[in-house]
């Protein structure tokens, strides 16, 4: 029993309690308090703290969004990461060159961001480069899945959906050399252990597909533009089996665009054609989401 006893700090508040207290602080305070001392700085940027902080603050709203420069791929351009609502700049990072597509995701506390760029699908080995805010650096992480991966979206920039501790993209897994023979799945990147994996979809139909966060859970949406309705599935037990997808509803929508879900109501104003503000999802294809 004595083995688990925490070591007391100077005024006898044990380290585990200090950790617990800091994990309840808002992002801004957490970042400021990295300056308290070395041990605070190192536990605050640890994956364990980040995931604890994320869980604690899931019910509150903390998020960040990313502004991408207009002309992409040129040298000297930076992406800016903002804290939501306060619009404080959390970080700026240089845009790497040598890639024709750039995919950005964010974890919500804004302490660590998993920003990835993917190599071209023609390249033999698939890998992503992960940018970590806390260390201000890029690292290469291999995608250990056999088939080639092609990300959805035909714009140069797309976004990742953060849910349950992982970033998610809709991707085609390309079998053989024929790019038309592919299976659409969700590619996830666990920010805690930095592992890629794939999640099968409930419906592989040919309609427009989105992934989003619905009440903290990973959800999958298909949009039928022609008949203007959307169908939503939610993954009840994250990362478990295919059967875990639960079809929530089908709904007729006013306009044909789906952006994401709000944290509270589930369905956003975006469905009414007002896409100015979307919670939980990082929108990058326009620059207009910054104003509320």
């Amino acid at each position: 029993m004595s083995q688990t006893k925490p070591k007391p700090t100077n005024n006898h508040i044990p380290e585990n309690v200090v950790f617990n207290i800091v994990a309840w602080l808002p992002v801004k305070s957490v970042i400021r308090f990295r300056c308290v001392c070395k041990s605070w700085d190192s536990f605050i940027i640890s994956p364990y703290f980040i995931s604890t902080h994320l869980n604690n603050n899931n019910s509150k709203y903390h998020g960040c969004f990313i502004k991408v420069p207009d002309s992409f791929g040129k040298k000297g351009k930076v992406c800016k990461v903002f804290c939501d609502r306060t619009y404080y700049i959390i970080s700026e990072y240089p845009v790497p060159s040598g890639f024709d597509r750039f995919y950005v995701g964010s974890t919500s506390p804004g302490i660590v961001g998993g920003f990835t760029k993917f190599g071209k699908p023609k390249i033999k080995r698939q890998y992503a480069e992960v940018y970590t805010l806390s260390s201000n650096s890029w690292r290469r992480v291999e995608i250990s899945l056999r088939p080639k991966v092609r990300l959805h979206g035909n714009k140069r920039i797309s976004y990742a959906t953060f849910a349950c501790g992982a970033l998610h993209w809709l991707v085609d897994f390309i079998e053989y050399e024929d790019e038309l023979q592919c299976e659409t799945k969700i590619l996830s990147f666990d920010v805690y252990n930095e592992k890629f994996r794939d999640i099968a979809l409930p419906d592989g139909g040919r309609r427009t597909q989105h992934i989003a966060v619905f009440r903290g859970k990973l959800s999958f949406i298909t949009v039928n533009y022609y008949d203007r309705y959307i169908t939503m599935w939610v993954m009840e037990e994250y990362g478990e089996v295919h059967e875990s997808w639960n079809k929530l509803f089908s709904l007729v929508i006013e306009t044909g665009f789906f952006y994401g879900c709000t944290r509270y109501a589930g369905l956003p104003d975006a469905l009414q054609g007002n896409s100015s503000y979307v919670e939980s999802l990082v929108l990058l294809d326009k620059g207009t989401e910054l104003s509320e």
């Binding site: 700090t9 100077n10 005024n11 508040i13 200090v18 300056c35 308290v36 001392c37 070395k38 605070w40």
Partner: peptide, 10 residues
């Protein structure tokens, strides 16, 4: 720092 009885060791 004062509250937790800590000192900067940077």
């Amino acid at each position: 720092r004062k509250f937790f009885g800590l000192e900067s060791d940077f």
